[in-house]
Computed example of a mutant assay.
Amino acid sequence: MLSAIDGTGFRRRPVLPFGLERLDSKLADGGLRLDALHEISGATPDLTDDCAATTFLGGIAARCWGPVLWVVRRRDLFAPGLAQVGLDPKRVIYAEARDDDELLAIMEEGLRHRGLGAVIGEVKRLAMPATRRLQLVAEGGRTIALLLKRHAREGSDPLGAPSAAVTRWRIGCAPSAPLPVEGVGRPRWELSLARQRGGESFQLLVEACDATGRCALPAPLVARPRAAGRAARAAAA
């Protein structure tokens, strides 16, 4: 999971890949830098998108090493939901902050500790200097800093303000795969990377995190490259 030193002698930053080539290849670092700040928000203020963003965070934290510090402003974190995406509630240290300033201070302390796998905070607004402090504190370690930025009001954009975050994501719900029997298939998300340092933005449809914290490509997307490869081989024959 962790990259050490490359062949040129330069120390490479520790990275947590998603394990999906189509996704990791679009990220400048080949995954999420562990010594960095990343921001996630729901695509809309709708509760379903908010839940999708939360479980996306939970899946990332599940694949990190060690304990996870999760700082909240309201008591709505659902432990069984986190367990479904691989984050054992026994790994989570919960903290409740009075305001965003206290939340920021707790996150900074968690990142300085260097003994945590992930530090997560839930905010509505955070100014550029605050995100810069989080990024600076995270650098040099391997504790990933994750911010869940919630919609402050209808029509607002949680990712509209400038930020020092290395990546900024919007997570939206998408229709699940149809089943041959009555029921609901595996949830799907529309991942939208609004900004990344050193790379371009993109969108990708994925199936939601499973019990190991990993996303998957929908079956049609997996089959499409294989079908293209067979067609190319047939044409060359």
Results as ranks from 00 to 15, higher is better:
M1P: 06
M1T: 09
A4D: 09
I5R: 10
D6M: 04
T8E: 06
T8M: 06
R11S: 14
R11W: 07
R11Y: 03
L16Q: 02
F18Q: 03
L20D: 01
E21W: 10
R22L: 14
S25L: 08
S25G: 13
K26D: 10
L27T: 13
A28T: 12
D29N: 05
G30N: 05
G31S: 12
L34N: 12
D35K: 05
A36T: 08
I40L: 13
S41F: 05
A43P: 06
P45V: 12
L47A: 14
T48N: 12
D50T: 13
D50R: 15
A53I: 10
A53P: 04
T54V: 14
T55L: 15
L57V: 15
L57E: 10
G59Q: 03
I60R: 08
A61Q: 05
A62C: 07
R63N: 07
C64F: 05
G66R: 14
L69M: 07
W70Y: 08
R75H: 11
R75Y: 08
G81A: 14
Q84C: 13
Q84D: 15
G86D: 03
D88I: 11
D88W: 00
P89T: 13
R91Y: 00
E96Y: 01
E96T: 06
A97Q: 03
R98I: 12
D101L: 12
D101V: 13
L103A: 15
L104P: 12
E109G: 10
E109I: 00
A118S: 13
V119Q: 03
V119A: 05
V123W: 07
A127V: 02
P129W: 02
A130M: 04
A130T: 04
R133C: 03
L134N: 01
V137G: 00
A138H: 03
G140E: 14
R142C: 01
I144G: 02
L146E: 04
L147G: 08
L147H: 03
L148T: 01
R150T: 10
H151I: 06
A152M: 00
A152H: 08
L159N: 11
L159H: 10
S163A: 11
S163I: 13
A164H: 09
A164C: 14
T167E: 08
R168Y: 09
I171E: 02
A174E: 15
P175K: 09
P178L: 10
P178Y: 09
L179A: 05
V181I: 14
V181S: 09
G183L: 04
P187T: 04
P187A: 08
R188F: 05
S192Q: 10
S192P: 00
A194V: 15
R195C: 03
R195N: 02
Q196D: 07
E200G: 02
F202T: 07
F202V: 08
Q203W: 00
L204M: 15
L204Y: 03
L205I: 08
V206N: 06
C209L: 04
A211K: 02
T212P: 00
T212N: 11
R214P: 00
A216L: 00
P218S: 02
P220N: 08
R224C: 01
R224K: 07
A227V: 06
A228H: 11
A231R: 15
A232K: 11
A234E: 15
A235W: 07
A236M: 10
